[in-house]
Amino acid sequence: MTLTMVTAGRVLNQLRHDRRTIALIMLAPCLIVGLVAWMFHGTPVLDQFGPVLVGFFPLFVMFLVTSVTTQRERSSGTLERLMTTPLRKGEFVAGYAVAFGVLATVQAFVVVGFALLVGMDVAGSVWLVLLVAVLDAVLGCTLGLACSAVARTEFQAVQMMPVVIIPQLVTAGIMMPRDQMPEVLEWVSRVLPLTYAVESLQDLARGAQWAGVRGAIGVLVLWIAGAGVVGVLTLRRRTE
């Protein structure tokens, strides 16, 4: 537990030195939300699309940041060194999840706050919207850790994004209602986590309460745990 916090503190410290990345993480989603609000001014599009952006961005950004950061740990030799210290693999993965969870919480407040400011209506609980956004970000982080074992270079790590994240976006029911999809794809969408994030956020915007979204939130938590376990299992203390 304590070495988890030591690792989380170290990762946050590294982020603190990288102001530009933090600014991009906070402002890029606001820019997109702002563009949508402006483009569709006076229509209800933002009410439908806002929740999607709020759910998608944390997943997308944290996945990218985590896979690049852990790839850097591998290539710089710091991971090899960490593996000779008392730090356990689970503590390493959990440390990353905590650090990016903190970052994600700030991001969620900024993005959701901005979306509300430019006119997104949330009939349900704003706190639940924030919760889903944070869970999405932590999921992005653990998925990034799970996938980082596959990527050998930073370039490959970035290329994992279209492989892991974009299919979720395509099948999440944004481009086409899920019940109109080919059956196989509908099934696939039933398994992938972004579907649940987007659905619960849209439901919350329409006024759903805890009872209406707790199932979806449960699925997100399961995915976080599963990806975390894969991240731990694929982390190798001994390498070639």
């Binding site: 030195h17 710091t78 008392p86």
Partner: peptide
């Protein structure tokens, strides 16, 4: 892992942290 210290051939420290931040981190570990 508590009793053995390893210095890799290429410097394996965090380039985006200060000297002291690196050392405090490895001391904490």
């Amino acid at each position: 892992r508590r009793r053995v210290g390893y210095m890799t051939q290429a410097a394996s420290v965090y380039t985006d942290l200060s000297v002291i931040e690196n050392l405090v981190h490895f001391a904490a570990l």
